[in-house]
Amino acid sequence: MELSFDLLINAVIAGILLGGFYTAVTLGVSISFGILDIVNIAHPAFIILGSYIAYIVNTRLGIDPIAVSILMLPVFYLLGAGVYQVYYESFERRGQESLRGLSFFFGLLFVTEVMLILVFGVDYRYVEAPYIGPSWRLGVMDFPLRMLVPCIAALTLFAALELYLSYTFIGRAIKAVAQDQLALRLMGASPVRIKRIAFGISIATASVAGALLIIIQPVEPSVGREYIGRVFAICVLGGLGSLPGTVIGAMLLGILESFTATFYGPSWAPAVAFGVLLLTLAFRPAGLLGR
């Protein structure tokens, strides 16, 4: 096959834009799995929930999906804090995270999906917004706004979170939860409270990620499952617990998938994440940036 330059450059651009969106999808897991060590495999279900809320409000009231998702942040935060409380009381405190805690999240993932199927059926749903459809062109380069807007929104979300974690008291305490519980106690913060806040934030990001998802593609309840492999592949690739690593991992996976879709066909894209996950675990379990 002759590699045309146009095709190549547009595959890279599409990959970067996709990677930007993947950042939003993964940030939450980066916090819960990477920092808090909570293997929240139900995260994609919360994202789909976010998509459906954006869909309902958008079709009923015509509000922009991203605006909806920002308005919903507190609701998702509270939902996350609530889930953490149950998780803590039932599993973490009893030291049963591994088997029963995982099964709990699996149950949540599953129950959410089935409930959405019962309410909305398995039809694809989509939203309306002015930036879905048009495209910016720069020479041969093509920037579909449907991808560009989510990418920018995701990177803004990343910047906000990174600033929060680095410069606020609670943010720094969240980072310390992973490394040094003693230091945390010396700071006078209760680990459980800090973890609850952090988990709330992690689920809150799902609201935004969900809105971005339904801007990018039509959504049906089981779409979330495709993201489980992606999210954890990115997390591991970028190195657990590092938000900048997450952005890099997301961009890499985005570009890889975009190339696979361009040169082999889109139906193969879901397999890429899994390959990346297995290869990373086999050869560089600490992630690309890890020691």
Partner: peptide, 9 residues
């Protein structure tokens, strides 16, 4: 996590 992704792949 790997088993979860295995089904999709």
């Amino acid at each position: 996590i790997a088993t979860l992704a295995l089904a999709v792949v």
